[in-house]
Design a protein around this nucleic acid. Structure first.
Lengths: 338, 338
DNA sequence: ATTAGCACTCAACGAGAGAGAGTGCTAACA
DNA sequence: TGTTAGCACTCTCTCTCGTTGAGTGCTAAT
C-alpha cells in the first residue's frame, strides 16, 4: 500500500461520500490535480479493487469504496475534524443553561449533535438504579396521600404516590424519611438489597403502615428504573441521504430506530477513551447492517452512558468522530464541575 | 340528494378509503350488489360530480370523493364506530396501571390510540402553569444546595435546584415552604402574581437569602412551564398510506409533525363535547392541507387538553372519530375518579 | 327512467434505440 | 519498467412509442 494508492483511495472516498456516485478514474485525476493520466489511475484502482478496498457496482461504472476500504481509511488515514470554536461555544452555553436537569442536558446535547453533523444522534443513558442514592423524602399531600421522592446523584428525580393513614403526622413522615436516608445514602441503587429494607421494616414496627407503603413503592420504583433509556434525535436527517430514497428502506430504518431494545444491547460496556466506529456489516444486528455507527462512552459519576451518531456507510467519519469526541469531552468536563 | 345518490356516494367513499384507487361505476354495482346497471350509476356519478362531491383524476379513470364529498359524508351520513369491548378493556387496564404520573398516562393513551387506529395520534397538554398549585417544598440536599419541588393538581411535578446559605437549618426551610403554601395553595399557577410573591418577600425579611433564591427559581419555573406540550405517537404509521409514497412528501410531513409550534395554535380552545373533524384544506396551516385531523378536547381538572388523530384525507373517519370519542370518555372518567 | 352498445381517452407498462460514462486491454513511449 | 494514448466493449439510464385495458360519455333502444 504505497503512498499513491493511499492518495487515490482517499480521493475516491471523499468524492463518493460527497456525491454518493461511483467515482471514475478521470474524476480522481481532475479533482486532485494529479500529474497522472486516467489510465494509470485505472491500473491502481484495479489493484485497490483486488485488495478489497474498492468495488464496482457494475462493469462499466466507476468504483466505490468497499466497507473494508472505509475501514482502512478510518484506521490508517483519517484525521478527525473537531468542532469549530463557535460550535464548541454554543454547546458550552447550551449546557450551562440546562444543567438543572440531567434529562434535558441529554436531550439538548443530542439535538446539538445531530444539528451540527446532520446525522441522527443517539444517547444511551444508564439505568437510574445504577446511579447513587442521594435522598429520599416522603411528602404529605392531600389527606391520606403522600409523594415519595427519590433523588440520585445525577440530579435525576423519580417519584410515586402512596396511601398513608390520615392520622399520621408530618413529623413522623420526616423521621421515617430520615431513617431511610441513613441506610441508603450514597449507595448505588441496585445494591440496596431487599434484606436491608426488610430489616428496616422490622426496626420501625410502630409506623408499619407508612413504612410498608413506602417500601412497596420503593421496590416498584427501583424495578421500573432498571432499564437503560435511549434518546434519539434528528432521525429525519437520515431521509436526506440518497441511499434512503427507497420507501421500504426508510420504513425499515425508522422502525429500527424506534425500537429501543436494539440499542440497548448494541454498544459494549467499555469505558474506553476511543471513539468506536462500526461500519456496515460490522454491526451484528441485521437491521443495522446498511448503516454505520460512530460512538463513544462517557462517564457520568462512575456510570457509563453512550453517545453516538448513525449514518449511511458512506458517512463523513472524520466529521462524526471529531464531533462525538469533542462533545463527549465537553459534557464530561461540565459534569465534573457539578 | 336522494337515497340512491347517498348510497352510491357512501359506496365510493368506502371503496376509495380502502383501496386508495379511483372507483369505477362497475365496481360500485358489484360491491354493493345494486340492482342497477353501471350505466345508471355512471349517470348518478356524473350528477354527484356536478354537485362537487366527486372528482375525476383524469377523464378515463373512475371517481374519487372530493373533500366536500367527505365533508358531506361525515356530516350527514357517518356512524361512528366505537372501540370494541376488549379494546376498551385494554385501555382501561393500561390507565389503571399508569395512574401514577400524568405524563405516562398521556404517553400510553397516545400510543394506544395510534396502535388501534393505525394513524398517528397527537395529544396536546395544557401548560403546567394552567393547573392548580398543590404543594411547594424546599428540600435540602448537599450543603449549600436545595431542591424546590412544585406539585400541581394533575400530579405533575417540576423541580429546580437552588443555592442556599450553608448555615440555614432544615426547619427554616420547612417554615418557608409552609408560608409559600399558605399563599399559593389551590391557586391556578398563572394567577399567582408577582406582586403577591413580592409581598411575601417583604414579610419574611429575616430569611431573605433563601426566599430570594426560591422566588427566582419559582419565577423561572412558572415561566418555563407556560408552554403547551405536544406528544405525537405512531408517526410512522403514516408511511404506510399509499398517498405518501413520495419521498419529498414524507419529508415535509414528518418535518411538520416534529414542529411543535404548529400544533399549539392548531386546535381551538372549545370545550365542546363533539369530535371535531378537519378535512384537507379545511386546515389553515398550509403544510397540513393534504391531511385530515380528527380530534376533541378533554377536561383534566377544569383545564382543557386536546387529543386527536391525523391521517390522509382518505381516512377512516368513522373509526377515528369513534376511537377518539371512546378514549376521551374513558380518560375523563378515570381522571374524575382520582 | 334505465340500459346496452360503442367510440373515445388516458395512465401504465414494456420493448427498443441511442447516448454517455467508464472500463480493460493492447501497443507505443520515455 | 512504469506510464500513457487509443479503442472496442459493457452496462445503465433515458426517452420514445406502441399496446393494453379500465373506464368514461353519448346515443339509441327498451
Amino acid at each position: 500500500m504505497d503512498e499513491r494508492k493511499k492518495q487515490i483511495l482517499e480521493s475516491i472516498i471523499k468524492d463518493y461520500v460527497e456525491t454518493a456516485e461511483p467515482v471514475g478514474s478521470r474524476a480522481v485525476v481532475k479533482k486532485h490535480a494529479l500529474r497522472l493520466s486516467p489510465a494509470t489511475v485505472r491500473n491502481e484502482m484495479a489493484d485497490l479493487e483486488e485488495m478489497g478496498f474498492l468495488e464496482q457496482p457494475h462493469t462499466s461504472a466507476g468504483r466505490i469504496p468497499s466497507e473494508r476500504g472505509f475501514r482502512y481509511y478510518v484506521d490508517c488515514m483519517m484525521e478527525k475534524e473537531s468542532l469549530t470554536e463557535p460550535e464548541a461555544q454554543i454547546l458550552h452555553d447550551l449546557l450551562l443553561e440546562n444543567m438543572q436537569e440531567w434529562s434535558t442536558v441529554v436531550e439538548r446535547t443530542g439535538h446539538f449533535l445531530s444539528q451540527i453533523t446532520k446525522y441522527p444522534s443517539f444517547i444511551i443513558i444508564p439505568p437510574f438504579n445504577l446511579s447513587e442514592f442521594r435522598y429520599l423524602q416522603i411528602l404529605p399531600m392531600e389527606p391520606g396521600k403522600a409523594f415519595i421522592f427519590l433523588v440520585s446523584d445525577m440530579g435525576t428525580i423519580i417519584h410515586r404516590k402512596i396511601d398513608i393513614p390520615e392520622t399520621i403526622k408530618e413529623e413522623d413522615l420526616r423521621s421515617i424519611s430520615k431513617i431511610f436516608n441513613q441506610i441508603m445514602r450514597n449507595r448505588r441503587m441496585d445494591e440496596i438489597r431487599k434484606s436491608e429494607l426488610q430489616e428496616l421494616r422490622d426496626t420501625l414496627k410502630k409506623k408499619r403502615r407508612v413504612i410498608d407503603r413506602t417500601l412497596e413503592a420503593l421496590e416498584h420504583m427501583l424495578e421500573e428504573s432498571g432499564e437503560e433509556k435511549v434518546v434519539i434525535s434528528g432521525a429525519l436527517n437520515m431521509l436526506n441521504e440518497p441511499e434512503f430514497k427507497d420507501l421500504e428502506r426508510i420504513k425499515r430504518l425508522l422502525a429500527v430506530m424506534e425500537q429501543d431494545s436494539l440499542w440497548k444491547g448494541l454498544v459494549p460496556d467499555s469505558i474506553s477513551e476511543a471513539v468506536d466506529i462500526r461500519i456496515g456489516k460490522e454491526n451484528r444486528e441485521e437491521s443495522l447492517q446498511e448503516m454505520s455507527l460512530v460512538f463513544t462512552g462517557f462517564k457520568g459519576f462512575g456510570d457509563v452512558g453512550k453517545i453516538g451518531l448513525m449514518g449511511p456507510v458512506r458517512m463523513e467519519y472524520w466529521k462524526a468522530a471529531g464531533a462525538i469526541e469533542a462533545v463527549r469531552n465537553i459534557v464530561e468536563e461540565m459534569l465534573k464541575r457539578l
